[in-house]
Design a protein around this nucleic acid. Structure first.
Lengths: 197, 197
DNA sequence: TGTAACTATACGAATATTGTATTTTATGTG
DNA sequence: CACATAAAATACAATATTCGTATAGTTACA
């Protein structure tokens, strides 16, 4: 696959797709809509991406990489642990701010198998890293001594499951809200000293 | 046409449609989606509505009637004119709060001719009424003496045009924002004593 | 049991979308 | 200029989706 990242038309196409996907989800947006909005001809589009899902994959990968980079940066900084946690939570919030319910649904729900795979693989990877950071924090006394590292990993997995739990989801008006709640619950729940809300 | 307003399935169908239309606009929502979400069979749907646009018409008429009722109520109350204006503006805001950009686009833009007709007819009707109220307010000294009644009507028409002006729209991140700005501009612009923001 | 309201299923027709092929039109670049 | 490159425009077959209707089956219930 060629690398089009410097290509102007490519960048414009990706930008349009991001706007539309974030607003309406993936299913409700057609390739032709992306093309006419950009504007770019359909032929050029297919030069860049095999199909709509591959484009969504590209965007999602971009998002996850950015998230990971920001997370690593926060964790590597020299600041109190609770401050880091707050920043990580804010990061989460920021990333999902302009994301529609529909977009998240399209990723978690149905037909886009590759996207689900991408997200779940990434989750595993990042969870391992987060767990590592948490264990290190525990050694430094920032996380309660009583918690087993395996339990932290378990909790992270569990959050992933809870996000797609319909019963729990129905208690919240949006997935973002639920994700925030779970993120808060996780980080504050394991911390040594509860910070002020 | 039969009157189904007491029918439970009818009410459920209308409720689902409202949720979906308000979120995604009209074009992006299919009849089948409304049916499976409600849930109601397609046959029953077509018993209620000839097609999607007729359903949207029903919802829009409901909305416009409610708006009008609330407006009349505010205007008939005994309170200072600036307070009324504020309430009317708040009403406008409230009505469009959970409405997506997409829904407004679908009404103003393109293919749904009947909806546009409905809105423009209503606009004329309500404009006449608003103008009447404004002229009465002017008689009571609540609106600047210098303003001609015809100018008020002209302004109201003008607002309708500005809403669909792409050049102006591009200055705002959403149609709602633009509509609010214009509504504010109109009401505050003609008032006798500028109320505190 | 009968009837009214609704569902389930199936289906043809219309539309929309996808993905590709072919031909034109710009846009540089030596 | 001439040539190469990139993109646009157009057209098109293959699918997929959506629409609207017909028919048969189910449920609720007086």
């Amino acid at each position: 696959m060629e690398n089009f990242k410097e290509n102007k038309k490519f960048q414009e196409t990706v930008a349009t797709a991001k706007t539309l996907f974030w607003k309406h989800g993936i299913k409700r947006v057609s390739i032709e809509e992306i093309c006419s909005e950009t504007p770019v001809s359909k032929m050029t589009f297919y030069k860049f991406f095999k199909n709509k899902e591959v484009l969504a994959e590209y965007l999602l990968r971009e998002l996850l990489d950015k998230w990971h980079e920001a997370y690593t940066k926060i964790m590597s900084q020299d600041m109190p642990f609770p401050t880091k946690i707050k920043k990580v939570i804010a990061l989460e919030q920021e990333a999902s701010a302009d994301m529609s319910e529909e977009f998240i649904k399209d990723i978690y729900n149905n037909e886009f198998v590759e996207l689900q795979k991408l997200v779940s693989e990434d989750r595993n990877r990042y969870h391992a890293e987060i767990a590592k950071d948490m264990i290190a924090a525990q050694k430094r006394g920032e996380i309660r001594k009583g918690i087993k590292p395996e339990f932290i990993l378990y909790l992270l997995e569990d959050i992933g499951n809870k996000v797609v739990d319909d019963k729990l989801s129905s208690l919240y008006s949006s997935k973002q809200e639920l994700i925030m709640e779970l993120t808060n619950y996780f980080f504050y729940g394991i911390m040594n000293n509860q910070p002020d809300a």
